[in-house]
Design a protein around this nucleic acid. Sequence first.
DNA 1: CGGAACTTTGATGCACCTCAACCCTCGTGG
DNA 2: CCACGAGGGTTGAGGTGCATCAAAGTTCCG
Lengths: 234, 234
Amino acid sequence: MPSGLFSKRINDAVGLAPSDRELLKALRVTERLLENREPLRRTGDAAIQCAIVHEGFLASYKSTFEREQILAFHVPGDFLDLQTLYLPVLDHTIISIGSSRVGLIPHSDLKDLIVASPNLAGILWRETIIEATALREWLCNVGARDALASIAHLICEMASRLRAVGLVAEDSFHLPLTQQDIANACGISTVHVNRTLQELRKRELIRWTNRTMTLLDPDELKRVADFEPDYLHG
Amino acid sequence: MPSGLFSKRINDAVGLAPSDRELLKALRVTERLLENREPLRRTGDAAIQCAIVHEGFLASYKSTFEREQILAFHVPGDFLDLQTLYLPVLDHTIISIGSSRVGLIPHSDLKDLIVASPNLAGILWRETIIEATALREWLCNVGARDALASIAHLICEMASRLRAVGLVAEDSFHLPLTQQDIANACGISTVHVNRTLQELRKRELIRWTNRTMTLLDPDELKRVADFEPDYLHG
DNA sequence: CGGAACTTTGATGCACCTCAACCCTCGTGG
DNA sequence: CCACGAGGGTTGAGGTGCATCAAAGTTCCG
């Protein structure tokens, strides 16, 4: 139950045997509430547990010489920190964007799970692979697209991923990011993010008020973004 | 034997049980020679095998609207395409940089291996996780560093990875990339790559002639690059 | 020896950055 | 119910890192 969204997403994507579903349900999950900008993990931490996002948004980032680069946004149903099963020391920081609720699962339980069900092990492995796939697409975003396409792409990605867990209604969804977050994600300045968002609004592609994002013209937005959702895998 | 460099690298990093070493040695590996710029995989291919780099360099890239983004360079000892065990359809293209030699291993054999040795399964899983770690660092490179730091960082990374497989002697190593490759990796233009390399040479940080890269002042190069090699894990 | 691929150079322009100010919103406390 | 402070959004002016275009030089290889 506590990992419900994760189970649902996996079941939709690749199916889930009843026995595996039971194993997932039986996991001992500790709830944790996070406030806005509260860190869940910090660079250098040695993690002993993984997390599932139950509600809200989180972001991973690395700090370089003088800029912070956001590597990924995490939404409900996402499994976090799976990499720490094999590389316990974190290479990035994870904070909450707005308040959020996560479920914590001890590494030891997950390792038992992996032994008990090779099939589930494969599913978790697959999750880490999909994460890498998203990183590759993000890399294109930052390296090969201009600001307009990059921000449009980010919006398309969030819409797709949130839709997969039922958090999009009528092309509208809650998106609590600040313009600073978008800047750190896309590798541009906040000022330029602001002006680019104005351009997206002027073209009547999006509306974004009260932290609610509405796609006014999804097809044209995808065209501007050069968005090919295959990489999300479900 | 055919997967020797891979075994060596893994053994150096996390150790390898004799039985697992035997399992690796027993894999049926088909050799394949690739010419300069010859593709090993193309976007959209459904892979039925994975590859180990025996000799030479390869690059993965994605094509976007009007630019190509290089996602990773692959060096001897690297395991390629592990992701296709779970996501057979490739989201990127892999080509040879200069001529190279790879060993091909059928998915079926690897899946048997995963069942036979959970320990080896973990090692392969760990490989895919390290790949993701490198992608995160690359993302910082493209998003948060300027051209000088970005190229310097790429050079440091290649030096570290090649050193791990014994291909660096006296801070010199073979690096068959073109300036266009560096441009596509770092998300900048070839002209600017050229001028930035001149700057690195003028500062007496590197020499790069006949495709041989020499680090003249490794410490200062790392400083310029903001290079922290932890993410390479071995 | 010829041509293709790659490197280098110069000139010009733009996308985006930085700095700085002002605005709005919203939560808090008196 | 208002004061106020902080965080976030918006705007303008000026600057720069890098792109683009074009052409010449160089290296490599058949």
